[in-house]
Design a protein around this nucleic acid. Structure first.
Length: 493
RNA sequence: GAGCCGUUAGCUCAGGAUGGUAGAGCACCUGCCUUUUAAGCAGGGAGUCGCGCGUUCGAGUCGCGCACGGCUCACCA
């Protein structure tokens, strides 16, 4: 083998040599009797009996230690990692030489042989025969430090998953969370449904959409910013408990808490109100935590957080009053609210409406301190065009958001089901759109028409699966819980 | 969009204030080694120092611009 500098070149030469020797480096199949985890288990449970079990298993070579006429290696499959032991006198001189010359870290190998325990106590396969299952042409990340370069980890997530056990666990947990949510809702009679991602009018949230074009129809579509208005059409249609887990798209800045595409669940239940949705929320989160993590206490960024119901219910009015001294039930117009902010010398951006100003006040002075699970109740009407008015509370709606670990996790309300009022709300939004608010809700005549056929009282809830996963896996950035987070393409690629 | 920081071998990182032949560990190649496990020992190969322009006799190092990334802020139900 000529010496070349490039490891890929060297491996390509091995590939050629394999084929020249009549060995297919990418065979179609290899039948295993055991996964790696099963092999370990079968040995443990048979230890002490006369015959040691023979297994046939496969995996990726993660380390090799050559000691002359015998070698050790570790192989890894999806279930775990096991050591293999290859001896020249066991497999023959030629086969042993073949192993040394042709196999590299990263290659997939199939092995067969009895299990034993080494002098240091590690369960090991004593290889009697082995086979190349797939040749790797590029070297793996470093075995000790793994892969730490954040950009490489995101752009080549497969390497991150290979090298970093914690990352693997995070994404397995994410999948289990979603399964547990489905189980929870299915058991309670909710139907999982699918609604359009390409929508002629976007809505259900305040956000700027992505626009795309349909060639055959020659018209623009928006990628949905939420599922809300379609799911509520299903409520009108008599599907009284529905949910959807799916991707939403918002054309906004990227941060540790925002990815332009993210996964949200939305749940709607006829004849429920927002109090009912609070009970559903705390029940769901604590049940899922218990199923996935085995506990309802999580640790997030150094905070111990208890998800056991009931969670704190805190009206926004009281929260703001406690944090700033301002009573929004007294200062019910923008002018007097601003005056209060000025008098108290609060550092705050100026917002164009009463509701937005309150929201700003809340975000600045209350939200960062909401570590234990908290429902914040009763939001300003002008930032909630789809929620039902709260009786005897002018300017407020029956809406809550919930916060855990300082993260805004979800949003819910008693759904507005009065079609005439819905029209007025949209007209208010249209006014804000005229005044330059790019996130104001667009008028949706088709939605109003649907509601005019009669919509039962309904509770609706939405929350982010990504942020839930962040909390459950103690990750501070949303990119750590999305397999392939949005990144700018490198120029030239 | 703004500020700060980062980008050196396949990977993890030194070097950079003070400009003068580009370094380490892992990985790779050669040799020795039949219970090792971050195996060991001896030897060896490997670089567009992110890209471009400039200053200089000379730039990984200094200056300017650009790209990508991270954090903070802005934006964001």
């Amino acid at each position: 083998m000529p010496e070349t500098s490039d490891q890929r070149e060297q491996r390509l030469e091995k590939l050629t040599a394999l084929r020249a020797a009549g060995v297919e480096p990418y065979p179609a199949r290899f039948s295993c009797t055991h996964s790696v985890a099963q092999a370990l288990h079968v040995f443990t449970s048979s230890e002490g009996s006369a015959e040691s079990p023979v297994v046939r298993t496969a995996g990726r070579i993660m380390s090799i230690r050559v000691m002359g006429k015998a070698s050790f290696a570790h192989i890894m499959d999806g279930s775990g990692r096991i050591q293999i032991y290859i001896r020249q006198d066991e497999v023959g001189e030629q086969a042993y030489e073949f192993f040394l010359k042709m196999f590299d870290l990263g290659d997939f190998i199939g092995v067969e042989g009895p299990l034993f325990r080494t002098r240091t106590g590690e369960i090991t396969i004593r290889v009697q025969s082995f086979q190349m299952l797939a040749k790797a042409l590029r070297p793996l990340p470093e075995k000790w430090h793994g892969l730490t370069d954040v950009e490489l980890r995101y752009r080549q997530r497969y390497l991150d998953l290979l090298a970093n056990e914690r990352v693997r666990r995070t994404f397995i947990t994410r999948t289990r969370i979603v399964s547990a949510i489905r189980r929870f809702l299915d058991e309670r009679g909710f139907l999982e449904v699918e609604t359009p991602i390409l929508q002629p009018i976007y809505g259900g949230a305040a956000a700027r959409p992505f626009v795309t074009h349909h060639n055959a129809l020659d018209c623009d579509f928006y990628l949905r910013i939420s599922d809300e208005l379609y799911l509520k059409r299903l409520i009108i249609g008599g599907l009284e408990r529905v949910y959807e887990i799916g991707r939403d798209f918002r054309n906004e800045g990227i941060s540790t808490k925002h990815n332009p595409e993210f996964t949200q669940i939305e749940v709607y239940q006829a004849y429920a109100d927002y109090h009912e949705m609070m009970r559903l929320t705390e029940e769901l989160w604590s049940t899922v935590a218990h199923e996935v993590l085995g506990t309802t206490t999580i640790t997030y960024q150094g905070h111990e957080i208890n998800l056991t119901p009931p969670w704190r219910r805190w009206p926004m009015r009281e929260a703001i009053k406690e944090a700033t001294g301002i009573d929004i039930a007294i200062h019910t117009d923008l002018e007097s609210l601003r005056q209060q902010i000025q008098e108290r010398r609060l550092e705050l951006d100026i917002k164009p409406t009463w509701g937005k100003q309150i929201e700003e006040l809340f975000k600045e002075y209350v939200e960062p301190n909401l570590i234990q699970p908290t429902f914040i109740l009763d939001y300003p009407l002008d930032i909630s065009p789809l929620a039902k008015k709260k009786p005897d509370a002018p300017g407020l709606v029956e809406r809550f958001e919930f916060f855990i670990g300082g993260l805004e996790c979800g949003n819910a309300f008693s759904e507005l089901n009065d079609p005439l009022e819905q029209r007025e709300r949209f007209e208010m939004q249209w006014q804000q759109l005229q005044e330059g608010d790019a996130e104001a809700h667009p008028m949706d005549e088709d939605w109003i028409r649907a509601m005019e056929y009669g919509m039962p009282p309904t509770g609706g809830l939405g929350f982010g699966i990504d942020r839930m996963t962040m909390l459950f896996t103690d990750n501070p950035s949303i990119r750590e819980v999305i397999l392939f987070p949005a990144l700018k393409p490198k120029s030239g690629e």
